[in-house]
Design a protein around this nucleic acid. Structure first.
Length: 571
RNA sequence: GCCCUUGUAGUUCAAUGGAUAGAACGAAGCUCUUCUAAGGCUUUGAUGUAGGUUCGAUUCCUACCAAGGGCACCA
């Protein structure tokens, strides 16, 4: 439709001998101002010797002469020269029918057809707690992955985990000091929680206790060398247990990773790359091998790639990781990494180094950063132990949901599953409703909402719509598009926009456009639901209202899926 | 000090350079003899400061102020 209107404007301008390079059409914010609108007359009015309003009038006359499209009801000049297009009744009923035919495929586009994209996100470290920052990256990454898939891309999900390094040594130190934390009786979740505690213990003394620092450095060396049987045993157990606990979370969150990359395996690959480019890209400085990025771009800075002790740093491993990713899929067209924005500056340095080593790879890399989860008091740090773990947040939220749930004819399993889905939705929505760049201030009391602008609100409107459909089936009212009310409802004016919203989210890597759209349409549907009886044999428009309800459920379900949120039929 | 991000109702967030800056929470009131009241319907309130570009700026540019992050051997 957008294209038809665009062409119409173009033709009209051509006939009037007006040249315009790019014509912008948009949806007016206020539905009273039509369904599409253009500001061409305003944009070009100044160059020509007419005022914009007169010019707009002329263009409209020409458009009306050309318009044979039954989808456009009328075209008007408004304001100081906007040209507003009002779509016809039949356009809207047709678009409702189209959505019904597409079902769960609604909103698909082929912007990324044929593209192979790897998305790396979440990246928790074994031996460290999975905190709500990881939850944030996971929610954003999973949603972006799904949106890209909906745009036709083949997406591979990847997770990169720091299985080696000082943090592991700190945790193992803690486990050695307090052997109770090595208790293996409980589930892997309680064991993983104990390892998290051990990490906090180790991290704390590392900063304040010289002797402990020495011991931890010693343990770190032994882990690298795998030279100590006792430490090896603890390491192997701890690695397994924390990874299993992560898997539980992924399952609940709805993420299935295809590739797991381990930091320890990237070290040697990265080191080789650095060695091969010594003198070209990298240089020696104070015994370390560094990349002086500021020489190429004053906004960048120097970073160490191999320490003076000869150990590869994260930067080097990142080079190795990139190499591995492209080896995994040589036909990959785009490699996306999603992290918090605190990693932006050094990722830029790594990207610069990579552009000198592998210009081909560098062009296919994209680093997406998001804001940070913050406490009201300040930064959250797993080192200091002032973290909210992903598991505890999920559990607390689910418990809240269970308390709020109304008694219906659910089995115990259904009830648990719904509570879980609604809890995840509350958390994910609170992350995805805003642009990904901004920080989220986490407030224990207020952060998770079940009403208003929230995930459960969306699920609730979906569940209600389903219950309408159930009733319609019982009463044998099938969707119909022939007998329609004259008035075009607000829902119809929103439904047809869904594909545009998905496309925009995909192009900008911003899930919140979908989240905001879903709230808008849920509100419209709830209002509709509250003010009319939909299933009513006496009402000749009932079949069309049922059709509207069907198309609403398809869009809500698909939209929620793109946010990584499940849509239970009952709640 | 330098670099990056962000400043919008009391609070948490929206708004491809356009029309009367939208929601939600909070507060006040109304609403289930209709399909799920986690709902619906009213009322209330905001663009950090100073300039600039533009017919038009929350949006772009400059300076300042404020918050967060980063700036060599941690990730």
């Amino acid at each position: 439709m957008q294209q038809e209107i665009l062409n119409l404007i173009k033709d009209a301008l051509k006939n009037l001998n007006i040249e315009v390079s790019d014509i912008v059409i948009e949806h007016p914010e206020d539905l009273k101002n039509g369904d599409y609108s253009t500001n061409v007359a305003l944009a070009i009015g100044k160059g020509v010797e007419r005022n914009p309003k007169e010019l707009a009038e002329k263009i409209v006359v020409e458009i009306n002469r050309l318009n044979v499209d039954k989808n456009i009801e009328k075209v008007e000049v408004a304001g100081f020269g906007f040209i507003n297009f009002y779509l016809s009744r039949s356009f809207f009923s047709k678009s409702v029918e189209e959505i019904l035919n597409k079902g769960d495929e609604v909103g698909k586009n082929d912007i990324l057809f044929g593209k192979r994209i790897m998305v790396e996100y979440t990246d928790p470290n074994p031996f460290k707690p999975f905190h709500i920052g990881h939850l944030m990256t996971n929610a954003i990454g999973e949603s972006i992955a799904r949106i890209l898939e909906h745009s036709g891309a083949t997406v591979a999900r990847a997770n990169y985990q720091g299985d080696i390094g000082l943090h592991v040594a700190k945790a193992i130190y803690g486990l050695l000091k307090d052997e109770k934390l090595q208790e293996k009786a409980g589930t892997h979740n309680t064991q993983a929680a104990n390892i998290g505690k051990a990490y906090v213990l180790g991290a704390d003394v590392y900063e304040n206790d010289e002797q402990a620092k020495k011991e931890i450095d010693e343990i770190n060396k032994k882990i690298y060398e795998r030279s100590d049987d006792k430490i090896n045993a603890i390491y192997d157990w701890g690695f397994k247990v924390t990874m299993e606990a992560f898997e539980d979370l992924y399952k609940m969150l709805g993420t299935k990773f295809e590739f797991y990359f381990l930091e320890s395996e990237m070290a040697d690959i990265g080191r080789e790359i650095v060695e091969a480019n010594k003198g070209k890209v990298f240089e020696e400085s104070d015994g370390a091998i560094v990349f002086k990025a500021e020489k190429l771009d004053p906004k960048l800075h120097t970073r160490v790639f191999i320490t003076s002790a000869g150990l590869p740093t994260y930067e080097t491993k990142e080079l190795g990781l990139t190499e591995e990713k492209f080896k995994t899929d040589p036909d990959m067209t785009l490699s996306i990494v999603i992290t918090a924005n605190e990693q932006m500056d050094y990722m830029r340095v790594v990207a610069k180094a990579l552009s000198l080593i592998h210009p081909g790879y560098a062009k296919k890399m994209k680093h997406i950063t998001h804001g940070m989860m913050r406490f009201v008091g300040g930064k959250m740090s797993s080192r200091k132990g002032n973290v909210v773990t992903g598991e505890s947040l999920l559990n607390d939220t689910r418990a809240d949901v269970l308390e709020k749930m109304v008694e219906r004819d659910f089995s115990k399993e259904e009830r648990e599953q719904i509570a879980s889905d609604v809890g995840v939705s509350a958390i994910k929505y609170s992350i995805l409703k805003q642009g990904i760049g901004g920080d989220i201030i986490y407030d224990f009391e207020k952060s998770i909402s079940f009403e208003g602008d929230s995930g459960p609100y969306l699920q609730y409107s979906y569940a209600r719509a389903n219950s309408v459909l159930e009733k319609a089936q019982k009463e044998n009212i099938l969707p119909d598009f022939e007998v329609v009310p004259d008035e075009i409802s607000e829902i119809e004016k929103l439904l047809y926009k869904f594909p545009e919203v998905v496309a925009r989210s995909s192009i900008e890597y911003e899930p919140h456009y979908i989240a905001n759209y879903l709230i808008e349409i849920a509100r419209a549907y709830n209002s509709f639901y509250g003010n009319t009886v939909i299933v009513n044999k006496e009402d000749k428009y009932s079949a069309y209202k049922v059709a509207l309800t069907y198309s609403f459920t398809f869009i809500m379900k698909t939209g929620l899926r793109l946010l990584g949120i499940k849509a239970p039929k009952k709640m």
